[in-house]
Write a protein that binds this DNA or RNA. Structure first.
Length: 447
RNA sequence: GGCCCUAUCGUCUAGGGGUUAGGACAGCAGGUUUUCAAUCUGUUAACCCGGGUUCGAUUCCCGGUAGGGUCACCA
């Protein structure tokens, strides 16, 4: 770790919802600052008054909070710094390093006067932590515009001024900014500002390999939150897009990332946002949710389960959590009636009780009668999946497992797919289990 | 088009002058299982092309090709 103070910043512009690629750079900025005991600032670049929206800025802050990426100090709004920008602009003009230029507007609404930087027309080389030395001939840039007026700086001037004033030492941003860097270095030199250490991270790509964008279906991260992705999983996934520690470890907590992360190990090539892998990672994190938190999540995502008693809920939770990849699947399960057998006795056609259609109603009824007889002898207090299984297993083996287990499971859940009959029996309790078995047996016998 | 960046399985990647080119996700097959899920095992699949350098290149160099980025009074 360097002994030099590290100061990073996340500087998004609130002109739309940010996607995963943006937050990945935020994550890297955060990690670099934290692993060096440095500072991580957030700066909202809202100098474009026409396109900046408050709701976007709020969404950015909300997402950062959800991810647990805490920043130091107050959020800096670039629009509040126009006096500073004006001073720098004046200085540059006074020193002859920039000039007010008369223009013929190229587009309607354009200005007749703008401030241009006096380009010294030289080659600029900078060292990128990820890519090494990059050289540009700035001649082709011409005398580029740095402000629309003294009160309205353009991005290039504002970033340089703000990074300077905030003491930013490390700029981590997307690869799409590489070509802006020589402009920024030119302005820094004119202002007497130090050049920070740059790291241009590769872009996160859409499945068609173009830059991730809303048009290509990129979602704001809050949409993933709303789908039931866990922030830990999203952070883990984002870190793994374009970075890995060189070991085979794939699951990392934020703390582990802070320990392991090395900017130099970030890949140079862009990477496609692979949602399947995100799902897998999310599933891994869902498995880790402690039992004490499961029931609250269960009723949050499936409100109709609120009517269940605490014991049933706590037994149901692990069964649900082992099979979902995102929390919203709980809602889907609930809405497709997958939990209804817990709320009401199921109704179904007697034919559905027949195992693969290969047994007769009488046979199935006999098997159920036997199960009822066996289970009746059990105590209500110890009626759990283990004892239920032990009680009927020998009989099931004898007649062919499916012959008993299918009608038994079906009569308890009324569904083609469900947890196994022993779990169902435990969930329902002895009394309800026997009720349902008896009901099934009786409709099989009804002529 | 100019400039810049990049290039290992379908995807995310490890590796690196001599390897059976490794892992993960997805896929496929099988075990387990009354169903679904979970789980276990196995398995398909990759070094963009050409020229150098070298005893030997997927690895180093050059060129090409392809992809991406950027060329705003957006950020």
């Amino acid at each position: 770790m360097s002994s030099q103070k590290v100061i990073t910043r996340f500087a998004p512009s609130p002109t739309g919802f940010l996607h995963a690629g943006n937050y990945r750079t935020a994550l890297f900025c955060y990690i670099l600052a934290r692993q060096n005991n440095g500072s991580f600032f957030v700066r909202i670049e809202d100098t474009d008054k026409a396109r900046s929206k408050k709701e976007y800025a709020e969404n950015i802050l909300e997402t950062l909070a959800w991810m647990g990426l805490s920043y130091d100090g107050e959020v800096v709004y670039q629009s509040a710094r126009t006096e500073k920008h004006k001073a720098y602009l004046k200085k540059l003009v006074d020193e002859g390093k920039a000039f007010v230029s008369k223009e013929t507007p190229k587009e309607p609404g354009g200005r007749t006067e703008v401030i241009r930087f006096k380009n010294p027309n030289k080659k600029v080389t900078f060292h990128d932590l990820i890519r090494g030395d990059i050289t540009f001939d700035t001649t082709e840039l011409g005398d580029f515009i740095i402000a629309k007026s003294f009160d309205e700086p353009v991005f290039h001037l504002a970033v340089v001024a703000d990074d300077f004033d905030m003491g930013i030492t490390h700029v981590i941003r997307g690869e799409d900014h590489i070509s802006n860097t020589p402009r920024h270095i030119l302005i820094q030199e004119a202002l007497g500002a130090p050049t920070p250490i740059y790291s241009h991270v590769p872009l996160v790509l859409s499945p068609d390999r173009s830059k991730l964008s809303k048009r290509k279906g990129a979602l704001p991260l809050t949409a993933y939150r709303d789908q039931g992705y866990l922030p830990e999983a999203v952070i883990n996934f984002l870190a793994l897009v374009g970075w890995n520690p060189g070991t085979e470890q794939e699951l990392f907590t934020l703390e582990e990332l802070i320990k392991e992360f090395k900017m130099e190990r970030i890949n140079k090539a862009g990477a496609i946002f692979n949602e399947e892998k995100l799902q897998w990672i999310n599933k891994e994190y869902i498995k880790k949710i402690p039992a004490s938190e499961q029931t609250a999540l269960l009723t949050k995502w499936a409100p109709k389960l609120t009517s269940l008693d605490a014991t049933t809920l706590s037994k149901l939770a692990p069964i649900v959590f082992e099979r979902i990849s995102t929390l919203s699947e709980i809602t889907q399960m609930s809405e497709s009636s997958e939990f209804d057998y817990l709320l009401n006795a199921p109704s179904y056609m007697p034919e559905a009780l027949l195992w693969k259609g290969k047994s007769t109603k009488d046979e199935s009824a006999n098997h159920l009668s036997k199960a009822i007889e066996l289970l009746s002898g059990l105590s209500e207090n110890t009626f759990d999946r283990t004892i239920v299984k032990e009680t009927v297993w020998a009989y099931a083996e004898g007649v062919g497992r499916g012959q008993l287990l299918w009608p038994m499971r079906y009569s308890l859940s009324g569904r083609e797919k469900s947890p196994d009959p022993f779990i169902l029996a435990e969930l329902l309790g002895k009394k309800e289990t026997l009720n349902r078995l008896t009901y099934a047996r009786d409709i099989l016998l009804k002529k």
